[in-house]
Structure formats: structure tokens, C-alpha cells
């Protein structure tokens, strides 16, 4: 196995490679069985680590307080690294909620929306088997029919046409209702390459996309962000707000191509 490529495996999974390195890595992985096996082993550990993350977080108010305290502290002295280390230690040793204080980081991007965070929590619970589905079906029409009348908005899951000679790269698994800000949101799970993708949908009056890298496409704005290591894409269309959560390594627009790789979808997405 090429040492250089092996060194890139964790960087690839952590989204730390430059675009040209990423392309070279993916090209190598496609044709090298042993590197692919090493990538799968590393990915397994990373998935377990993400899933082992405790499912609780400090209330926003406390986070904000600690954040502003840290910022003030940073301006006032150069002892921030020690403070951060102390906090990290406190947090890991049992103060669970407090480690979130560490989000007070320099050049912090804008906060992800509460709706995006709710989708990430739901995705994590689902991958741990802690979020049973209310309807299990591989038919988008059947799932849409189940949601009809249960949501304060109309939801029709699209049935992407299969390109001739190509099987659909992903399939719908099922769905359920999830409470979000005194409303029901629709939670839908897809599966691609045997890995789950979560889609959380609510009315645009309840939640709006914010933060992350904005990718404009055909009049829509897709917000791409990494939250707790998951890839999160948020957008608004036709009065609804969508959040898509996955653990795929692709980023930005490439993450759209993951699912929409058929010739039909490629036409739409390029």
C-alpha cells in the first residue's frame, strides 16, 4: 500500500484534503483494493466515534454565556490555550454539557440553525437505532401518503426517474414525525451505499437555512456546513425548509452529485 495514500485516509474522512489531493485520492481508491479496505476500516472507527458522542447539549443561553466569557478572556490575556485545555479537560471528565463551551473558537462561522441541529440529532439517534420509524417503505408515494394529514404542510416526496440502464443509487427507507418548535416536522430516511441519509422538512415559516457555505443553484440557495462531523445541507424551496444530513465525504455541490449521479440527475445538477 502506498504510504502517501495511507497518510491521506484520515485527512480524507475528516475533510482536510485540498481539492486536487482529494481527487487524486479518490482516483487511487477506486482502483486499489487494499487502500479501499484501509479506508473502510478507518471510516468504521470514525463512524463509531461520531455515534458515541453524547446526545445532549448545553442550553443555548449557557453556551452563549461561556462563549462571550471566553472571547473576553481571549482579548484580555494570552492564556486562552490553557483555559481551553482546562475546559476541554473538565468537559471530557464528566461535565458533558460544558465541552460545548469550546465552540468559542476564533473566526467561528455563523451558528447553524436550530433546525439543522435538530436534524443532526435525529440523524445521530437514527444511526444508533434510537429513533424508530413510523412507516417503513421503499415507495416515496406511500410515505407521502402516510404524511398527508399529519403535517401542517403538504409534502410530496419526489420519485426520481431511473436513467435507462442505471439503477437508482439511493432508496427511501421510511419516515416519522418529529416535534420541532411546537410543530411536527417530517423526518425521512434514505439509504445510499448502505449508509443512511436523513432529511428533515418543515414549513419555511418555522425554520430558515442559515450559516455555512452558500451554494447558489437554479434560484435556490443551498447552505453547506459540517456539524459535529456530519455533512449538512439546508435549503428552502416552495414554502418548505429542508435539511439533509449524511456522513459522506463529498462536500459542497459534490455532495449533491452523490445521490444525483445518474445521467438524468447530472443534467439537472450541472
Amino acid at each position: 500500500m502506498d504510504e502517501h495514500v495511507r497518510h491521506h485516509i484520515p485527512l480524507y474522512l475528516d475533510d482536510e484534503l485540498q481539492e486536487d489531493e482529494r481527487q487524486a485520492f479518490e482516483a487511487h481508491i477506486r482502483c486499489c483494493v487494499s487502500c479501499r479496505a484501509a479506508l473502510d476500516r478507518e471510516r468504521w472507527l470514525v463512524e463509531q466515534l461520531r455515534q458515541a458522542r453524547p446526545c445532549y447539549r448545553a442550553p443555548q443561553e449557557l453556551r452563549d454565556q461561556v462563549t462571550s466569557l471566553l472571547r473576553r478572556e481571549r482579548r484580555a490575556s494570552r492564556r486562552l490555550p490553557q483555559i481551553a485545555v482546562l475546559l476541554a479537560a473538565m468537559v471530557v471528565m464528566g461535565g458533558g454539557a460544558l465541552w460545548l463551551a469550546l465552540r468559542a473558537r476564533p473566526a467561528a462561522p455563523t451558528h447553524p440553525s436550530a433546525f439543522a441541529l435538530a436534524a443532526v440529532e435525529a440523524h445521530q439517534r437514527y444511526t444508533r437505532g434510537q429513533l424508530p420509524l413510523d412507516i417503513v417503505s421503499d415507495s416515496p408515494a406511500e410515505i407521502s401518503a402516510w404524511f398527508a394529514g399529519r403535517l401542517p404542510f403538504n409534502l410530496k416526496l419526489p420519485n426520481y426517474p431511473e436513467a435507462p440502464g442505471q439503477s437508482k443509487p439511493y432508496e427511501v427507507v421510511g419516515g416519522r414525525l418529529l416535534g420541532f418548535q411546537q410543530n411536527y416536522a417530517a423526518y425521512v430516511v434514505y439509504r445510499l451505499r448502505n449508509r443512511p441519509i436523513s432529511l428533515l422538512i418543515t414549513a419555511a415559516t418555522v425554520a430558515q437555512p442559515s450559516g455555512g457555505e452558500v451554494i447558489p443553484w437554479q434560484g435556490l440557495e443551498f447552505h453547506f456546513a459540517a456539524i459535529h462531523g456530519w455533512k449538512v445541507l439546508t435549503w428552502m424551496d416552495n414554502g418548505l425548509t429542508y435539511v439533509l444530513v449524511s456522513d459522506f465525504e463529498e462536500r459542497g455541490q459534490a455532495s449533491c452529485i452523490v445521490c444525483h449521479a445518474s445521467t438524468y440527475d447530472q443534467r439537472v445538477f450541472k
Binding site: 466515534l49 485545555v85 465541552w99 460545548l100 469550546l102 459535529h228
Partner: peptide, 12 residues
Amino acid sequence: EVIVLRYFEGLS
């Protein structure tokens, strides 16, 4: 620290 910051907090 690095495990928590990377995999629990999602920092780069």
C-alpha cells in the same frame, strides 16, 4: 482533547 474537539464538536 483532539478526539472530543474533532468528533464530538466537529472542529476542523
